[in-house]
């Protein structure tokens, strides 16, 4: 009985640590969830698409992302995590389940072309954010980061770090909800 109170305090603290220490402090909740995608106006990079594909316009803005759910993937050829997620992005592109828009973050176009040539191009369109300013407006602090936008262009989910099959399992229901 004497130790009931200290024991209760100890257990409460241990429970707090058990929860707190398992959370990754590098994954910050984005304040942009539920908000419309931040404005941008970026040049597209002309890439050899599939034969017969319509080439993208020279520039695109956030308005061009509306109409259907889309994954906006900030990546770069110099980023190791991007190489990790790339095979899964290729798989996703082949499945045709969702449109993938790549935003090439602070990257040289020649490096990007070489990288996509070697690993394959999963993107419907690639935009170039050479200065990194669009990244700042979207709250990007370490590529790769992937934003899930619904058909109205609202951000419904953000994946920090490589897009994994597990993350995709969480994202897929969100897309179905917004498409209907």
């Amino acid at each position: 009985m004497r130790f009931a109170l200290p024991l209760a305090v100890l257990i409460a603290l241990l429970a707090l640590f058990a929860v707190g220490l398992q959370r990754d402090p590098r994954r910050l909740p984005s304040p942009l969830i539920g908000k419309p995608a931040p404005a941008f106006d970026l040049p597209t990079i002309a890439l050899p698409g599939p034969p017969g594909a319509v080439p993208p316009p020279a520039r695109m803005t956030q308005a061009d992302l509306r109409g259907a759910p889309v994954l906006v993937n900030f990546f770069a050829s110099w980023c190791a995590g991007c190489q990790d997620e790339h095979p899964f992005l290729m798989e996703l592109a082949r499945s045709g389940e969702v449109r993938l828009v790549g935003i090439d973050y602070k990257d040289a176009e020649s490096d990007l072309r070489r990288w996509l040539g070697r690993h394959g191009d999963p993107y419907a369109v690639v935009l170039s954010d050479l200065s990194g300013n669009t990244g700042i407006d979207w709250g990007v602090y370490g590529v790769p980061e992937t934003f899930v936008l619904d058909a109205q262009g609202r951000i419904v989910f953000k994946q920090i770090g490589p897009l994994t099959p597990e993350a995709w399992q969480r994202i897929r229901p969100l897309l179905q909800g917004s498409a209907s």
Binding site: A76, S77, W78, K106, D107, A108, D111, L130, S131
Partner: peptide, 10 residues
């Protein structure tokens, strides 16, 4: 082997 981030002059 490490490609660096591109820094645009400002």
């Amino acid at each position: 082997a490490v490609r660096a981030q591109v820094e645009t002059p400002r």
